[in-house]
Design a protein around this nucleic acid. Structure first.
Lengths: 96, 96
DNA sequence: CCCGCATATGCGTATGGGCGCATATAGGAG
DNA sequence: CTCCTATATGCGCCCATACGCATATGCGGG
């Protein structure tokens, strides 16, 4: 439910990961690690939290695991996520 | 920033309080206590968290303190909050 | 001045969550 | 089979946070 989603998003590294995934493309853990400046175990666990919140799905591709935003998110949840991500984007725009 | 907001909202009682306040009216702590089934100290502290996240403001009125949603919330944050609250409302609608 | 209602807060405690480290598992290459 | 890369997970530690209880503070009434 929404509380699980909020809980998942209210952590800097996880919110960061969502920003990376916001292009609706696939990204492997090693890429996310770099872009979020996180260690391997940290990133893996955080992705697990996002996954069990239903926000992302994963797919094995050879030795990599590709994550992407869950395309079957309920419309209202997807809208909320989008609105949340927009906040930081606006902030970056303001900073420039 | 948005992380503080998400942190504040990712707690059941606080999210509940936001739903009560979503009518953009003023509500005193004792009313919020009842509607959220919380003890006095719990509710007071939770409102403090919402307040320091900038989500609500308070006003002394005789022996009561009236809380309401911060009318000066940045537009993008207000939109995110609205989208989040909408999720639970949709759920209630679906349950009926 | 004293009392009672409404609200905030100090304090001690318990629980949850994140982290690092080490290790397990999975898949490809030789 | 072995090795290497990529990812997940068990474990123990630490810190943040929520809670209850008691107490302080603010405000109005008598």
């Amino acid at each position: 439910m929404i509380l699980t989603v909020l809980n998942a998003l209210s952590e800097p590294t996880r919110l960061n990961a969502m920003h990376v995934l916001a292009d609706h493309g696939e990204h492997c853990v090693c890429e996310l690690m770099e872009r979020c400046s996180a260690t391997q175990s940290r990133m893996s666990r955080h992705m697990g939290v996002l996954k069990s919140a239903g926000l992302v799905i994963d797919r094995r591709d050879a030795q990599w695991v590709r994550y992407r935003i869950n395309p079957d998110l309920p419309a209202d949840v997807a809208a909320a996520v989008e609105a949340i991500l927009a906040c930081r984007r606006n902030q970056e725009r303001k900073a420039a």
